[in-house]
Amino acid sequence: MTTEGTVEAFRRAEELLTQRRPLEALRVIQPVLDVDADKPSVQLLLGRAYFFSAQLLRAERAFLRVLEFDPSDHYARLVLGRTLQRQGRLNEARAQIRLAAMMCPSPAYQEALGEINAHIATRDM
């Protein structure tokens, strides 16, 4: 696949995810993985496609791979936390979301942290 074809496939996969069509995005991104699997942006897109198609263990692996490349990627930590949350691994999820919120104190991250804290509090009652 040419560089141009790789970029086009990547963009098409992003578009498909925006349209909430993760399984199609996974098919489109496959040739990109053959060429650029070690790029954090590719792994992040792959993780999002897995997340939206409820392939949570695969999503977790992709997000962890992003964090191997760049431990300071706050968005990867947030979506890893959300992935862990969907698996019921609330304490692990909280740790990741807390780190994300410290790295990027946006209202959305604070809201995610509040949500997971509420889930943990109700679970422990």
Score class of each variant (00 low, 15 high):
Cys104Glu: 15
Pro40Ile: 02
Arg20Leu: 03
Gly47Thr: 08
Leu90Gly: 03
Phe52Tyr: 13
Thr122His: 10
Arg98Asp: 15
Ala121Gly: 01
Phe51Gly: 03
Glu15Arg: 14
Pro22Gln: 12
Ala62Lys: 04
Leu57Asp: 15
Leu26Pro: 09
Gly81Glu: 09
Tyr75Asp: 12
Leu78Ser: 01
Glu24Ala: 11
Ala9Ser: 10
Val32Gly: 07
Tyr109Met: 11
Leu64Glu: 14
Ala118Cys: 02
Arg77Ile: 01
Asp73Met: 13
Arg65Cys: 08
Asp73Pro: 09
Phe69Val: 13
Tyr75Lys: 13
Val42Glu: 11
Pro40Cys: 03
Gly5Phe: 07
Gln55Lys: 10
Phe69Thr: 13
Arg89Ala: 12
Gln96Arg: 15
Met1Leu: 13
Leu46His: 07
Leu67Cys: 00
Leu23His: 14
Glu15Lys: 14
Glu115Arg: 12
Leu26Trp: 00
Leu56Pro: 03
Asp124Tyr: 10
Ala49Pro: 03
Leu33Lys: 00
Phe52Leu: 12
Leu33Tyr: 09
Thr2His: 05
Arg123Glu: 12
Ala54His: 14
Ala108Arg: 14
Thr122Asn: 11
Thr83His: 08
Glu15Ser: 05
Arg20Val: 12
Ala76Ile: 03
Ser53Leu: 04
Arg48Thr: 14
Arg98Ser: 13
His119Pro: 01
Gln43Cys: 09
Val42Thr: 04
Ala121Val: 05
Arg48Leu: 04
Met102Gln: 15
Ile29Gly: 01
Gln30Asn: 12
Ala76His: 04
His119Lys: 15
Arg65Thr: 14
Asp38Asn: 14
Ala95Thr: 14
Arg98Cys: 11
Gln110Ala: 11
Ser53Arg: 02
Thr3Lys: 15
Ala93Lys: 00
Asp73Thr: 03
Leu80Met: 05
Lys39Pro: 02
Leu99Glu: 14
Thr83Tyr: 00
Phe52Ile: 06
Asp34Leu: 11
Asp70Val: 08
Asp38Leu: 14
Met102Phe: 12
Val35Arg: 14
Gln19Leu: 11
Arg82Pro: 06
Ala62Phe: 03
Met1Lys: 12
Gln96Met: 08
Leu33Arg: 04
Leu57Lys: 15
Arg98Tyr: 13
Arg77Tyr: 05
Thr6Glu: 15
Leu84Gln: 13
Leu17Ser: 00
Val42Tyr: 10
Ala37Ile: 10
Ser53Asp: 03
Gln110Gly: 11
Leu113Val: 00
Ala49His: 01
Phe63Met: 05
Leu78Asp: 08
